[in-house]
Each structure stands twice: as structure tokens, then as C-alpha cells.
Design a protein around this nucleic acid. Structure first.
Lengths: 291, 291
DNA sequence: TTGTTTTGATAAATTTTCCTTATTGCGAGA
DNA sequence: TCTCGCAATAAGGAAAATTTATCAAAACAA
């Protein structure tokens, strides 16, 4: 079999034109080098060097082989360098999924800090619903995802990042109370995102509301639409603080915080248990937590 | 030290996504492969594969390393081939691809002459469509291919072999003209091979016919079927001379040559630019040309 | 849950490869 | 002819790779 060792010995021989010195150059005894060169010659079926008293010189075939050998050795060296530059957390491509009800509010803060701390990170973002993110994670199409906990997938690991408290959003009322209790949510008047959006389930769960057939069945398909509806006085809804901080057009809405124990959703990071190392994930989690 | 053995085991692992099967592929026990992979990983200082129950999957770093590895292995393979070709042309194994619309007509003449001139040649033939041949050439699975020019791959080199003029094949007509002009092709009546066959594109291009929605849309999937249809009087088609010389069942068909400038396709030989030497290809080309 | 199967990792023994030292053979120049 | 320098060869030992056997963890089926 052809080996890299043979090629590098041959390279040394070409440089020195002398078996003894070539052997010295690669820190090996002269017979060892001789044997490897002969091995290379028989393997290729070609005479590569012409031995003459005083030293050795390459044949025409040898020169061609040398050129190709050096290309190979160079490529190998490149591969080895590649390894070194790729070390350390969050280096190179990293595929991160985010649920839509977090993405637009969290990312603007997060991305610049990531770029500062990990300049060699090539972040590939994907925004999708929780169920999609989970399956893409499991299949190895994503490296990690930011979503609301808890998850039940037992091939995934999660870490909590922060709590995101809910607010009650109602049409503007001058006499809005400073804070209300979670038990005082106006059920008949409540409007949520359509079925399938995780924000809907989170809101229901956080506030301990059972799904109610009497509840207004118009499911808004996006948060912006939903806020539009509230603004126009149609209903109330539950908004996570995360959205409030960034969403525009909240002027005509009253945002009422809850009394303790305030309902909230837990935002966390998820990744495969079988993922190579955890350093990427802890590094990412730290960046997000220290905002 | 990094070795070629490690790279080829890693290549196998990438192909199989499974340690056991990868080991089988390289004819070695599973632990042997596992050890070499781990060695490669520690040497590069990178985790290359993610082990999970069910198999193994490349990490992002692993994918990059794989690409570089394959380049190296390909270069090594070329170097090995170089040895053989340097000892005289067409010596030892030679993998030749041929497109189906040439193979059955060209090979019966060519093979005996090749055997006479180059008795040590071990020809390995592969018949496939142009796109397949090109990709197999590029990946180093073929040494050369006979197909219709021109090609656009800039990592391949080509040489024209001969011109193969087209004939118009119509159902038998006693008063068939001795020759017709290319501009007089009966478009409405024209039947060609289905989309994807290069012969179809060549015919259209050679005769400067734009794809026409009115054209009969029944695409025949093989040349034999096509000729069958013509025989039964359904339509006309364009046949290259190459096929006419050998195809059976042409008795009930009128074959009308074209007036100058007669449309034709160019048959040529293609190989990798990076191929060790050109002598194989010129030798092969000469054999084909001097038929 | 509890066996059962499958997967990759690990261990120990063995084979293969490679290396070192010692020696030989060959050719050029004194 | 003698001798010096060079590469090839031989023999024994060290290192690397492989094999078989076994293990632990995870997935799967009962």
C-alpha cells in the first residue's frame, strides 16, 4: 500500500539528492529510508531515482511523481492546520433554530455579542415552530434550538436560560389596574394565536387555563395580527415580556403585569444528548444569559 | 502521525454512517476502524463523528475534513494510476464510460482492435448517460468517457473523435427523396427520445430546432422502441448514422440523408485534466479514429 | 417494566510493519 | 591495489495495526 511516509521520505530524497542526508533530514536511519523508497518504486512500478556513486538523482518519471507527491503532502498539511484553527467552542458553522415568538426579540441583542465573542462562528439560523425544531434537532439538521421548556424528547438535553413573564394585553383603558391576579383573566374575552403555535399552549399552561370551547375561536396566525386586533378593541390576550420589549404598535394597548406568582414561560436551549461536546452549548447559553 | 489509512477508513465511515458496515467495506474488523477513527480525531484535535445508537453521523467539522480527505485520496489514486500509465500506454486496468447511443454501435469494432494493439489493457466498461459519466469521471471512478461534445466541465479535457451525421427516419415511402435540407424537417411529425436523453438534445441542437410545445410529446424511452414506432408509421425521427449502421429492423423505414450542411453530432473522448498522463487518451483516441 | 438486540468502545494477544545496527558490495579516485 | 563513500542487504527488536473476545449503553420488543 502507498503511504504518506513513503512520499515524505521521497520528498526528502529529492531535496537532498542523497540517501544518507535525506535519512538524516527525516530523522531516520539510511536503510529505513532506502527500503521505503524501494517500496514506493515497486508499488508504482517505476524507477524514481537513479543511483550513482556520489548520490542519487531523480528520473523523469521521478520528477513527475515528486510533483504529485508534494501536492498530496501539502494537502495533508492543510488538513492538519485546519484541525488546529477549528478548535475552541463556537468555531465554524453552527445551526441554531429559534421559535418565532422569541427570534425577533432575542436575536438583535444576541447576534452582535456572539460576533464579538466568537468571531469565527458562522451562525446558520432557522426560525420554525417547536415541533419542527425538535425533529430537525433529532435528525441532526440543527445543532441547537432556543425554545420554551419543558420538552419531553428524551434524546435531547435542555438548559433553562431565563423566565419570560406574561402580561395581560387589553384595549387601552384609562383606569387599567396596576397589576392583576392570574385568576382574574377575562376568559370570555381572551384571544390567542391559532392552534399549533407553541405560544398559545404556553400561555394556556402558564396561566392554568383549561381549553375552553366557549373561548373565542378566532385564532390569529401571527403576533402582529393579534396585536392589531387587540388595538382595535376586539379582545384581550396574553403577551410574553419578550414580545413587548420589541413589538411596535403597543401604544393603544394597556399592558397589565400579573401579581405574584406571576405566570411565565421558561425559555431554554436544547441539543442532542449525543452531540460531540457540550462546550458549544454552554458557551452559547452563557452569551444569552448575560444579556 | 496522520496516515492515508485513517483517511480512507474515515471516508468509508462517512459513506456508511455506521462503524460496523464501514469496517466491512474496507475489509477490516470494527475495532480496528474505531481505533483509527479515534486516532484521526485526536490527531486533528476535532470530533469528526457523532456516535449515537443506530450509527454515526458526521459533525460539521467532520464534513469539512471529509471533503479535504477525499481530495487527498483522489490525488493518491491518481498518483498510483500514474505509475501504471507511465510504463506504456493502455497498460493495466482502464475504466471507460460510454453513452448508450454509441456503445452498442462503436464497441464491437473497437474492442478487438484494442485487444490486438494493447494486450495488457484491462478494459472496464460502463454504459450510462452523459451526466452520470461526467460526475463519475470527476470523482475518479472513471478514467475516460466517450460521449457527444461539447462539454462544459472545466476540470475535464476533451478530444473530438469523429462526426456522426443525422438522418431523417420516416415510415417507408416508395417516393422518398434522395436527400433533404435540414430546414425541411417535418416538425409536427417529429418524435424523439424522452427528456434527459442526450441524444434528444443533440438532435434538437444539431438541427437548430427550438423546443416546440406542438411537438409530439410522447418521449420514447429507448432507441429500439423509437424505431418500432417509426416502423409502424406513427412518426419520423432523427437518427445518427452510428445507430443506423448496426440497428436491426430498419427495413420498413426510409432513411433520408441531409443536404450540406448536414447536421451531425460530434463524438469525443473526455478525461480529467488532472489525469497522470495523456498518453492513454491519445492512444485510445487513435484506435477509435483509425477504424 | 424486563429481556434482547444492536451499536460502538475497550482489552489482550498476535501479526505486520518499520526501524536500528551491523555488514556487504560496488564504484571512483589516490 | 587500496581505500573511501555510498547504497543495499540481513537480522533482531520496537512500534503500530489487526483480530477475537468482551463490555456498556441505548433502542426495541414482549
Amino acid at each position: 500500500m502507498l503511504t504518506l511516509r513513503q512520499l515524505s521520505y521521497f520528498d526528502a530524497l529529492a531535496k537532498e539528492q542523497h540517501f544518507g542526508r535525506a535519512a538524516e533530514r527525516v530523522a531516520v536511519s539510511q536503510p529505513a529510508l532506502s527500503v521505503q523508497i524501494r517500496e514506493l518504486e515497486t508499488h508504482l512500478g517505476l524507477q524514481l531515482v537513479e543511483r550513482f556513486s556520489g548520490g542519487a538523482r531523480l528520473t523523469e518519471a521521478g520528477k513527475d511523481v515528486l510533483e504529485k507527491s508534494r501536492q498530496i503532502l501539502l494537502a495533508v498539511q492543510e488538513l492538519e492546520t485546519f484541525g488546529q484553527t477549528r478548535q475552541g467552542p463556537l468555531n465554524g458553522p453552527f445551526r441554531l433554530g429559534v421559535i418565532p415568538s422569541i427570534g425577533p426579540y432575542l436575536l438583535p441583542d444576541m447576534l452582535p455579542r456572539l460576533r464579538t465573542h466568537y468571531p469565527h462562528l458562522e451562525l446558520i439560523l432557522r426560525e420554525s415552530r417547536t415541533t419542527n425544531l425538535i425533529s430537525e434537532l433529532s435528525q441532526g439538521h440543527l445543532d441547537a434550538a432556543i425554545l420554551a421548556l419543558p420538552l419531553e424528547e428524551d434524546n435531547l438535553k435542555t438548559q433553562a436560560l431565563f423566565e419570560d413573564p406574561f402580561y395581560l394585553a387589553t384595549p387601552k383603558q384609562p383606569d387599567a389596574p396596576a397589576a392583576i391576579s392570574a385568576t382574574a383573566i377575562p376568559m370570555d374575552d381572551l384571544l390567542l394565536l391559532e392552534e399549533g403555535h407553541c405560544l398559545r399552549d404556553q400561555a394556556l399552561q402558564a396561566c392554568s387555563i383549561a381549553t375552553n370551547p366557549l373561548m373565542k375561536s378566532f385564532g390569529a396566525s401571527s403576533l402582529t395580527t393579534l396585536i392589531q386586533l387587540i388595538t382595535n378593541g376586539y379582545a384581550s390576550t396574553l403577551l410574553p415580556q419578550m414580545c413587548i420589549e420589541k413589538e411596535a404598535g403597543l401604544d393603544h394597548i394597556s399592558l397589565i403585569p400579573f401579581l405574584d406568582p406571576a405566570p411565565s414561560r421558561t425559555i431554554g436551549l436544547a441539543w442532542r444528548k449525543s452531540a460531540p461536546t457540550e462546550q458549544d452549548f454552554t458557551a452559547l447559553a452563557n452569551i444569552i444569559k448575560n444579556r
